[in-house]
Simulated scan of single mutants.
Amino acid sequence: MSNVFEFVAESRGQSGKSAARRARRAGNVPAVIYGGHGEPQMLLLNHNEVIKHLAHEAVYSHVLGVNIDGKTERVVLKGVQRHPAKFQVLHMDFLRVTMSEALKVHVPLHFVNEQTSVGGKKGGIVTHAMIDVEVSCLPAALPDYIEVDLGGLDIGESAHLSDIVLPAGVEIVALAQGSEHDHPVASMMASKASKDDAA
């Protein structure tokens, strides 16, 4: 099985819509690597391999390798354009990573202890306001996901960004912009059954 964190690509000489359409007809995905300390580079990736890679959640929040004609670039996945009706990836954007420089990446949130929480034991239902959060950190500190413990949440309460326990070296971008950006990530709502019990 191929390494899920390494994409194999080849250089794409031509750009433009017609060249991209030809690439897709041939079973490839047009892509670009940009940023860092290099010029943008146009790429082609095998569509079937891309689909296999994107099935893994960690690919979206992990430092990846893109092997281009035998040379590997360290990158993070910044964008995936999908066809609105077909099971097809149309384009991908990769951002170069310098291991000594902080980067901003969206990381998935994993919610734990919903059922055993204070409100969950009373029949409450959790609603999620966010499924991921943008963090800033050095590439080596980038987590695959961030856990949000809802164990102490009661009915009528919300967990906010500031309640999340972060790994060392990781900051939430929104919180660095001020306390007014301390948005809720999950709320415990009363279910119909729990309302009936309280009546």
Results as ranks from 00 to 15, higher is better:
117 S>F: 11
117 S>C: 11
118 V>H: 08
119 G>P: 09
119 G>D: 07
120 G>Y: 06
120 G>L: 07
122 K>R: 11
123 G>I: 10
123 G>F: 07
123 G>M: 07
125 I>V: 15
125 I>F: 05
126 V>R: 05
126 V>T: 13
127 T>Y: 08
128 H>C: 01
129 A>G: 11
129 A>Y: 11
130 M>E: 04
130 M>Q: 13
130 M>H: 14
132 D>G: 13
132 D>F: 01
132 D>P: 00
132 D>E: 15
134 E>V: 06
134 E>F: 03
134 E>A: 14
135 V>E: 06
135 V>H: 10
137 C>M: 01
138 L>P: 07
138 L>N: 06
138 L>I: 06
139 P>S: 00
139 P>V: 02
140 A>D: 10
140 A>L: 07
141 A>W: 00
141 A>M: 09
141 A>V: 00
141 A>I: 00
143 P>I: 03
143 P>H: 06
144 D>H: 11
144 D>N: 12
145 Y>E: 14
146 I>K: 06
147 E>P: 07
147 E>T: 15
147 E>C: 10
148 V>C: 08
148 V>Y: 06
149 D>Y: 08
149 D>I: 09
150 L>T: 06
150 L>R: 04
151 G>T: 09
152 G>Y: 07
152 G>W: 07
154 D>T: 04
154 D>A: 14
155 I>P: 05
155 I>V: 15
155 I>R: 10
156 G>K: 10
156 G>N: 08
157 E>A: 11
157 E>S: 10
159 A>V: 13
159 A>Y: 00
159 A>D: 01
160 H>V: 08
160 H>F: 15
161 L>Y: 11
161 L>I: 11
161 L>F: 09
161 L>V: 08
161 L>R: 09
162 S>P: 00
162 S>H: 03
163 D>A: 12
164 I>E: 02
164 I>D: 03
164 I>Q: 02
165 V>R: 10
166 L>I: 05
166 L>D: 02
167 P>V: 02
167 P>L: 04
167 P>C: 04
167 P>E: 02
168 A>N: 14
169 G>Y: 04
170 V>K: 02
170 V>W: 02
171 E>L: 03
171 E>G: 00
172 I>M: 01
172 I>K: 00
172 I>L: 02
173 V>K: 00
174 A>P: 01
174 A>H: 09
174 A>T: 05
175 L>K: 03
176 A>M: 14
176 A>N: 11
179 S>Y: 02
179 S>W: 03
179 S>T: 14
180 E>K: 13
181 H>P: 05
181 H>T: 11
182 D>I: 06
182 D>K: 05
183 H>Y: 15
183 H>L: 14
184 P>V: 04
185 V>L: 09
186 A>C: 14
186 A>E: 13
187 S>T: 15
188 M>I: 07
188 M>S: 07
189 M>I: 13
189 M>P: 00
189 M>S: 10
191 S>R: 03
191 S>H: 03
192 K>P: 00
192 K>H: 08
194 S>A: 12
194 S>L: 03
194 S>Q: 10
194 S>M: 08
196 D>Y: 08
196 D>G: 12
196 D>E: 15
196 D>S: 13
196 D>W: 10
197 D>A: 15
